[in-house]
Measured scan of single mutants.
Amino acid sequence: EMEYEEITLERGNSGLGFSIAGGTDNPHIGDDPSIFITKIIPGGAAAQDGRLRVNDSILFVNEVDVREVTHSAAVEALKEAGSIVRLYVMRRKP
């Protein structure tokens, strides 16, 4: 069973403070093209906020749908998102 969360982060000097993997051209798990959080960087915006978790998958960055995009398109969406970034994420319920 999945749960969904909308997380708004303010981009810090060091960016959003997380790493991603995945994409249609580089699936992270099997042939699932989802964009997954692979690392939360200590002291970064995501770590300070505390809600984003490793293995969360990002569905939307602001209004941009990143469910079926290449890795570089997801990176671009995050880069272009401005200083306030709304992430709509999905994760397995614990």
Rank of each mutant, 00 (worst) to 15 (best):
E1G: 02
E1C: 02
M2W: 01
M2P: 00
E3A: 06
Y4F: 03
Y4E: 10
E5T: 14
E5A: 10
E5M: 15
E5C: 10
I7W: 01
T8S: 03
L9F: 10
L9K: 00
E10F: 10
R11Y: 11
G12N: 06
G12L: 09
G12H: 08
G12V: 08
N13F: 04
N13I: 13
N13M: 03
S14A: 11
S14F: 04
S14M: 13
S14I: 13
G15V: 08
L16T: 06
G17V: 00
G17I: 01
F18T: 04
F18Q: 00
F18C: 05
S19E: 05
S19M: 05
S19Y: 15
I20Y: 06
I20K: 00
I20W: 13
A21P: 00
A21E: 12
A21N: 05
G22V: 03
G22S: 05
G23F: 10
T24E: 13
T24Q: 13
D25K: 04
D25S: 10
N26W: 12
N26M: 08
P27N: 03
H28Q: 04
H28F: 05
H28R: 06
I29E: 12
G30Y: 14
D31C: 08
D31H: 09
D31T: 13
D32G: 08
D32W: 03
D32I: 09
P33W: 08
P33I: 10
P33R: 13
P33Y: 13
S34W: 15
I35M: 11
I35E: 01
F36R: 15
F36W: 06
F36K: 09
I37W: 00
T38G: 05
K39F: 07
K39W: 08
K39E: 03
I40A: 02
I40R: 07
I41V: 04
I41R: 05
P42T: 13
P42I: 15
P42F: 13
P42W: 05
P42A: 07
G43T: 10
G43Q: 06
G43I: 13
G43S: 14
G43K: 10
A45C: 14
A45T: 06
A45R: 04
A46G: 11
A46D: 01
A47F: 08
A47T: 09
Q48P: 13
D49N: 11
D49E: 05
G50L: 11
G50D: 09
G50Q: 13
R51E: 12
R51M: 10
R51K: 15
R51N: 03
R51S: 14
R51W: 06
R53F: 02
V54I: 08
V54H: 01
N55W: 08
N55Q: 10
N55E: 06
D56I: 00
S57P: 10
I58D: 00
I58R: 00
L59D: 14
L59P: 01
L59M: 13
L59C: 15
L59Y: 09
F60V: 12
F60T: 15
V61Q: 00
V61P: 00
N62S: 14
N62V: 00
E63S: 10
E63P: 02
V64D: 06
D65I: 06
D65E: 08
V66D: 00
V66F: 08
R67S: 12
R67L: 03
E68C: 10
E68Q: 05
V69Q: 10
T70R: 08
T70F: 15
T70M: 11
S72R: 13
A73K: 09
A73T: 12
V75T: 13
V75K: 05
V75W: 07
L78M: 05
K79G: 01
K79S: 01
K79H: 02
K79L: 01
K79N: 01
E80G: 10
E80L: 15
G82L: 14
G82N: 11
S83H: 14
S83W: 11
S83A: 08
I84Y: 14
I84A: 13
I84H: 06
I84T: 10
V85S: 09
V85P: 09
V85W: 02
R86Q: 06
R86W: 02
R86L: 07
R86Y: 05
L87V: 09
L87I: 13
Y88C: 15
V89Y: 09
M90W: 02
M90C: 12
R91Q: 12
R91V: 15
R91G: 08
R91K: 06
R92G: 14
R92S: 14
R92M: 11
R92I: 09
K93Q: 14
P94N: 13
P94R: 02
P94M: 02
